[in-house]
Design a protein around this nucleic acid. Structure first.
Lengths: 157, 157
DNA sequence: AAAAATGCTTGCAAATAGCAAGTAAAATAA
DNA sequence: TTATTTTACTTGCTATTTGCAAGCATTTTT
């Protein structure tokens, strides 16, 4: 991808530079389902091995996955989430929830989630940490934060 | 992308078939910031015009954006979110929140969000709609749902 | 009537992904 | 102890996708 101008800098652009391709997030999804080894990723996803290798390297480089030798079998390499990586779970849930609602056919969603914490079926929801109300797009306004690049800033439209 | 085997079918794979490329989600981010016209998307993102055209078509085809002529200027085409599309806001927030936390430098996040509903700064959080607790990966368990493809189902690992 | 704005399309070059084969290190089987 | 298999890759080539520059058809402004 050409480096985008990302005029109105926000973190979404930065994240998508790491995760915004056709495979990276699928790899993470597998990892959230417990996959840890190269051959499992390959078998479950049907991804070309050079691409898988490249994406795993990128995820490790970006501190999302940690790579280490399996102490039980030195041929094996174990890929595990770092704290940074495991916190992408909210993105996974947001994607899954939207897909369950809008892309499932008559049959309903392919997977059911259960919230062990409260014992109920899990319906993930993006809420305000302060008031715990569900967040809708038109309830949010934006101001430039401390990390905004002033040289590129412009009026709201 | 080669059609992936998506062995353990879940909605994330379906969603990423629509949104999982280098540009589609950036286009949606711009739309969440109020962009409605072709030339604005192009100027803000620096995307090639053939690719932008292709992605907008795909978003319209998938019912995420609606396309209509601007009644005030017949040259202009207005792209607006459908309900299906606007509900991708939770994904946008999840990405932004993670990027703010993990990819901002010393300076802090580039954008500050304000929750008009409660009047406080917005810290988006993925929570359980039932108990309103924050969801963490290891608090969730999975069962196959009604839409699971039985022919491909396998034991948990 | 001519020029400019807008939203595209087209053709070609460059970058990226996919496929099949090969390799190196470690484990297991003969 | 050697041969075979497993695992995690790499390499070289082909196919697909993206980027760039130019062009085009409406509609609006001058």
């Amino acid at each position: 991808m050409k480096k985008n101008k990302d005029h109105r800098t926000c973190s979404v652009g930065r994240v998508l530079e790491i995760l915004g391709d056709r495979w990276t997030f699928m790899i993470l999804r597998e990892a959230f389902f417990g996959v840890r080894y190269y051959d499992q990723f390959q078998a479950n996803l049907g991804i070309a091995s050079n691409i898988l290798s490249d994406r795993l390297k990128s995820l490790v480089k970006n501190g999302i996955l940690n790579k280490k030798k399996d102490p039980e079998d030195a041929r094996r390499v174990v890929y595990r989430f770092s704290q940074k990586g495991v916190e992408l779970y909210s993105v996974t849930l947001a994607l899954m929830r939207w897909g369950d609602k809008w892309l499932s056919g008559e049959e309903g969603p392919p997977l059911r989630l259960h919230h062990k914490t409260c014992g109920h079926d899990l319906e993930p929801m993006m809420c305000c940490a302060h008031c715990r109300e569900e967040i809708r797009a038109f309830d949010v306004s934006y101001e430039s934060g401390p990390g905004q690049d002033k040289s590129e800033e412009e009026e709201a439209d």
